[in-house]
Design a protein around this nucleic acid. Structure first.
Lengths: 146, 146
DNA sequence: TTGTATTTGCAATTGGGTTGCAATAGCAAC
DNA sequence: GTTGCTATTGCAACCCAATTGCAAATACAA
């Protein structure tokens, strides 16, 4: 697929080696419409050549370091990763929707602004906006809700 | 102290037993001006009679269940607990400041509003606003920053 | 093709959080 | 004050996401 070329270039631009693990993980993150846990990713890449657990962790952290992905801890205190908006620089004020039923994280486009006033001596570097609730898949009118 | 009376009443109101662990933990949370980790609390209560690790976890979860405290996973995927605003019902839209140096969580008074637009089928129950940066204690002009 | 620094894979470890179960202790009733 | 019952506690063992150390494999520049 053409996206692979795209990704290779992105990696190479950073003076980094283009490895299958990096390509596959980033491609997956980019095609995912929501934040994926380490486990999700491991499962998704299990076809054919599985990726080692540790390698996966390292690739993910590397992607975050490079500003190609970002990382949030969900309610179950599990990290979820998503691709950063194409550019590369770590994305600034971003809004997330966290489903309290399935724990999945979605990125909301429509992002708000302005940090609230901070106490003296505090400095802000990033503002995160998290909306909790039920995602479309879990928002069905059923009583089977945990 | 008078606060203890206050807390005893709060617990009793819930048809729950008033135990030293519950009293001490809730009193501590109420006097703390920021979210505390399990470890913070364990350390803080270590004078005289220490509280068992497991008991502490259970007391904390119970407090959350009762709406007397709330629980957030911080960036290091560690839970932090804070007392709920006196009433008891879990507090609504709240703003947090998270120090990326020391990992501590502070509650910001000046709370913002309005959730962003959500995709169809999504329902929001709570909005969290998280500001990241350096807290007053860590914001000193030094290179000794991890 | 070769040399080498970067990545990978494996095995072992860390650490926050949880579970099972017997011992303890609130507290309501006598 | 004593008794009895149930809610809590404390201990020990366990779970699992994430991390670390190190040797083997490999991307890629020369």
């Amino acid at each position: 697929m053409k996206d692979t070329q795209d990704i290779s270039r992105l990696l190479r631009e950073r003076g980094a080696r283009v490895t299958p693990a990096r390509l596959r993980v980033l491609a997956l993150l980019r095609s995912a419409e929501r934040g994926l846990s380490h486990h999700d990713i491991e499962k998704a890449l299990d076809d054919g050549t599985p990726v080692d657990r540790v390698t996966l962790y390292r690739v993910l952290d590397w992607l975050v370091e490079q500003g190609l992905a970002h990382k949030v801890a969900d309610e179950q205190r599990v990290f979820r990763f998503s691709a950063a908006s194409t550019g590369g620089e770590p994305h600034q004020a971003h809004a997330h929707f966290v489903c309290d039923d399935c724990g999945k994280v979605f990125c909301l486009e429509d992002t708000p602004r302005a940090a609230p006033r901070l106490p003296a001596g505090f400095a802000s570097t990033q503002v995160e906006f998290e909306v909790h609730g039920h995602c479309a898949a879990c928002n069905v009118p059923v009583e089977a809700r945990r």
